[in-house]
Simulated scan of single mutants.
Amino acid sequence: MTKRLFGVFLGISLFFPGFLAAQEVKVFSIGSGNVAGNYFPVASAICDAFNARDDSLRRCSPEPTPGSVYNLKMMQSGELDFAIAQSDWQQAAFEGTTLFAEGGAMDDLRVVTPLFKEAVTILAAPDSGIRTIRDLRGKAVDIGRSASGRNASIRNFLDEMGQGLDLFGATYELEPSNALQELCEGRIDASIFVLGHPNQLIQQALDKCEATIVSVAGPGITEFINQNPVYQVAVIDMEPYGQPGRQFTTISVVAALVARDGVETRLVADLADAIEDAHQKLTADLPVLDAGILKNPEVLNMPIPDHPGASLVQN
């Protein structure tokens, strides 16, 4: 910097001491998930929508993470401003149960906007003999890496069903891409995911080795939903996968953008407003959002209240 420019900035700072501080850019982050999953591209698109509004003093940054549980714990410690998380883990964090019991209830957790449904999706190898959820007994099953949200969700789901991992003959904790390879090569019988549809990984499994999707249904599942209203009956439509007319019944949670109540109301409102304005582009660019960005928390059985900033946009 030249002496003349330095003098100009010095003079400005002396006569207007708040000038330079006022120009500081506030960067806020959205905790997402694995870059190969749905959360990261959705968070990236949301940040792009916000940043495109020419607000040069506030910038949104998508952060790749291990997923829902990690995101919520980082929010609890103050290291994330916003996050995408499954509704079952939102409830656990809000109430301070299961994996969040030690840290205490995060009762100031709030929904900014629901995003999309995430279905429990069981992929079975073609020669596994698995046709129903009951056929998983004694089989070699992948449930995801131990630090992942899907691993925690599957363990919690089994626990609520009065089962444990000993239901399976062998349990594997694999990355999604590795699970696909192991499934197609016949080294595991099934892999369980919790994800939005359509999904590229599912398409690859169907195309590469003719894997099949298994329905998650039956009297035990109905009783589970009645006792756990954060879960809902869902249908996996196979038309996007090139199988028109085929559907599989399962259960789902809801992926939502969340923040703590203390996050500035105006920032939350502007972020929610940017998502609303970019709705058509988001749904066009992201197939998982084809049904539209979900807007009715009551119908979706969201377990936590709306953020005041989100309500400001709706009003």
Rank of each mutant, 00 (worst) to 15 (best):
E173S: 07
T250P: 02
S177K: 09
Q247M: 12
A179G: 13
I251R: 09
D166R: 15
Q227T: 13
Q200R: 13
R246Y: 12
M238F: 13
A259E: 03
Y241R: 03
D261L: 15
R187L: 11
V235Q: 13
Q247G: 06
G169R: 09
P244D: 10
N199L: 00
F248V: 10
S177P: 01
F193Q: 03
L206I: 08
L183A: 05
V230M: 06
R187A: 11
V216L: 04
N228K: 06
E210F: 08
V263N: 05
P229V: 08
L174V: 04
I221M: 07
S177D: 14
V235Y: 06
P229L: 10
L257S: 02
F193K: 00
I192V: 15
D237M: 10
L165T: 11
N178Q: 14
V254A: 07
A179K: 01
P240L: 10
P244Q: 10
F248H: 13
A170P: 00
R260W: 04
V263Y: 06
I213Q: 00
R260T: 11
V254L: 06
Q232N: 04
T222E: 15
C184T: 05
L167W: 14
T171N: 09
A217F: 13
V230N: 07
Q227N: 14
R246D: 05
D237Q: 07
V253A: 12
V194W: 11
V194L: 15
D261K: 15
I221N: 00
V258S: 04
A211E: 00
P176R: 01
A234G: 05
G220H: 08
R260S: 02
L167F: 14
S252G: 02
T222F: 11
P219F: 11
I236Q: 00
V258Y: 09
D261F: 13
C184S: 07
V263T: 11
A217W: 12
L174N: 12
A170Y: 09
D207S: 12
C184E: 07
N226V: 09
V230A: 07
F224Q: 02
L174S: 06
G242Q: 08
Q200S: 14
R246T: 14
T249G: 07
L183F: 03
